[in-house]
Design a protein around this nucleic acid. Sequence first.
RNA 1: GUCUCCGUAGCUCAGUUGGAUAGAGCACAAGUUUCCUAAACUUGGGGCCGCAGGUUCAAUUCCUGCCGGAGACGCCA
Length: 601
Amino acid sequence: MFFVVLWGVNKRVKMTSLLNKLSDIVGQAFESEGLDKAFGRVGVSDRPDLAQFQCNGAMAAAKAAKKNPRAVAESIVPKLQANLMFSKVEIAGPGFINLTLTDLELGKYISSISADQRCGVDKISKSETILLDYGGPNVAKPMHVGHLRSSIIGDSIRRILKFSGHNTIGDIHMGDWGTQMGMMISELQLVHPDWVYFDESFTGEYPSESPVTMDDLEEIYPRVSALCKTDETRLELSRAATVDLQNKRPGYHALWKHFVTISLQSMKRNFSALNVHFDLWKGETDVHDLISPMVDDLTKRSYAVKDDGATVVHIKKNDDNKEYPPLILYKRDGGVLYGTTDLATIVERIKNYNPSRILYIVDKRQSLHFEQVFRAAKLTGIAPESLELTHLGYGTMNGSDGKPFKTRSGGVLKLEDLIAMGHEKAMQRLEEAQAAQDLSQDEKDDIASKVAIAAIKFADLQNSFSADYIFDLDRMTSFEGKTGPYLLYQAVRIKSLLDKAGYKQNPQITIKPDDAGRNVILTLIELPQVIDIAARNYTPHVLCDHTYKLAQAFSSFYGNTHILSESDEVKKQGWLEISHMVLCQLELLLDLVGIKIPDRM
RNA sequence: GUCUCCGUAGCUCAGUUGGAUAGAGCACAAGUUUCCUAAACUUGGGGCCGCAGGUUCAAUUCCUGCCGGAGACGCCA
């Protein structure tokens, strides 16, 4: 396979990443020995002291062909040694093939992508429409740290898939139709029976101004919710109000609209601060009108049946080794549950967007629920077999005691308060460092916000999302070591460096790797693989890990090399070019996890 | 009771279809600033990868059992 080097951003053609190119070359060597090409997969070396790259395929191939792994490697290696790209090809241990490129080859490759806007990362060959369901805040409930995970993980996966070339649709899917609404409404009715919203004979216009504030709602919900847990009659009252609301009783509906309006303001403020984006701001309510026809249809086709007063879909399969409770469509009292709305939402999403995948970024404790919904959707033919329905369940935020995180006073930590704490700390650090002293207060505020969000997001996203993790406030707002602010800091230093150097991008430049910059270059070339892995497995933490590795490689290079005072102009320009590429990749990688970089800090 | 997930350094976490000497941050110890932002860099100590078997040339990774932790299990979301 020929590697086409084209200069300039406008003439961009499909670029093969260096690791793919090497895999291809080694794969051909395997193929010529009658072995599967796939064994030629090349990765970055685990032993940088021995080589830059390695291929473990000889051992796997030997197993498949029942041969000696070393003998297989020995048949492959001479073919590679004949290739002038490599300065060194060796067999090590049981049959590792160790590869090192010539600096000329490395320089050629890195120069070829130096001006590329996508940092040498190709779009995937076939684009799909992927709908992501994340965020899921509840109307009338305050957003707390528990909402952090769904929002930032979902948003990051959306960004990664979009960058990879997919058509992505992020839907917030608000919880705006459940029993918590009935709780709020019934409580207000108990306290203010005289309100016009509760006068069933009233036929006029309801007030346009909400009678309650977000603060009121935040106070009422936890109180009534706790009450309903112990008081059965109070719960019944809430359920009845919920059913009435779902049947669109005018006064209740008007009141509910107020809840939504004031909650939306609060949500938008929170998500904007977090730099989390949604394409759709839909909620459970939006599918309400689809429910009754859906259930009628399922009843007609005998999937929906009456069971103990409720209307359910049985989802057991014969080869199950596990009990599956049925999906309940209508409760005994006629109310609908979130399983009903989730199923109807699949109907709506297929009709409106026809996605090939729907990803749900929701607490992993709801995995049974999603399994029920997915089974029901596939079983009844609501969703075609080809539609990928995946629940990406994230773990619980625990406190240091291993139990779900609570503040010292026993309450939930509001998202706004967490952000405010990070902001305050960042501001403090800014003063200490005496950085940005010439900037206005607004500009400093902007920097502190970016630092705080970077700290919070990176602290969370660097964990693999499926595991529970210990929420540590100090760690969340820490700025040293493997943190968001460290990454920002490296990017800011590069900006400052390029600025001082009067750097202008030169697409014609040929970078010559040297001992100082080689490690940085080797890290830069890993990008396409890293993004591919993150996109295929929906794992933002892989990006976080690599971003840190890149920043660290640069920081080490920067600390040991004085770039601006370098008298060898060719060397200096090469270093600046590398620095610029690091900045571009940091910007890209941080953007994929939803982190913005300030110009100074 | 059944099922799911987890157990890796003092703490918080990585470890990519089984591969070489299991990595990082924090914490701890020692260095580095007449020079591009020290929110940084360099170096060091730290590990029966929960335990016991099994499969394999090779197991933190796959299988089985046990111990320990978390969670879910029809009318909340």
